[in-house]
């Protein structure tokens, strides 16, 4: 893997609201076990940082929890929900496993890629949309489906994709 230059990432810190939330979360674990909060704090920090888990974010969390930066890097690179590269504002994360594949998610992915003019793993020029494929999201009964932000969009059809993209674009312009 390509190494990251240390000084290329702007520093990060929690906003006031997230700082309060972080303190609430820390209180869930025994005092000497604050590292337990790591996964959740990374989620919160990544969200604040527009969905990008930068080195700045990771170093801040290490400092916040008083652990070594490498302990955060090890965790952030292990779990797939942390995005180590910047993505679009809205990330379509299509489930491609088992039932979703059985009921035709591949066609929906192709359709979405064509519609947005990007491939899997790419972001539109306006920085609005990214397409990713992910493994089973635990919604097989409602397949095909995808994750969008913190929500699930289920029973996907081509017209549902059209509608969704239109709505998100309108939101942006309105």
């Amino acid at each position: 893997m390509e190494k990251i230059k240390v000084n290329s990432s702007p520093p990060f810190s929690f906003n006031e609201e997230n700082l309060l939330e972080a303190k609430r979360i820390l209180a869930m674990y025994p005092e000497d076990r604050s590292k337990s909060a790591l996964l959740r704090l990374l989620h919160i920090a990544q969200k604040q940082n527009n969905g990008f888990c930068s080195v700045g974010v990771m170093d801040y969390i290490a400092d916040f929890l008083k652990i070594k930066p490498i302990e955060v890097y090890e965790v952030a690179t292990f779990y797939t929900m942390y995005h180590l590269k910047p993505l679009g504002k809205h990330v379509f994360e299509f489930c491609q496993t088992a039932t979703c594949a059985t009921v035709g998610v591949e066609k929906i992915i192709d359709y979405t890629c064509n519609k947005l003019g990007i491939g899997i793993g790419e972001t539109t020029h306006d920085g609005l949309f990214s397409i990713k494929t992910v493994e089973c999201l635990g919604a097989c009964g409602y397949a095909p489906m995808m994750q969008l932000g913190e929500d699930y969009v289920e029973h996907l059809t081509e017209s549902k994709i059209d509608e969704l993209i239109q709505n998100l674009r309108n939101q942006e312009n309105g």
Partner: peptide
């Protein structure tokens, strides 16, 4: 306490590791 995208955390000892951050 949430995970962050790893099937393996359904295995009970991996889950405990994740819960320990």
């Amino acid at each position: 306490s949430p995970g962050a995208g790893a099937y393996i955390c359904g295995e009970e000892t991996a889950l405990l590791e994740a819960l320990e951050g």
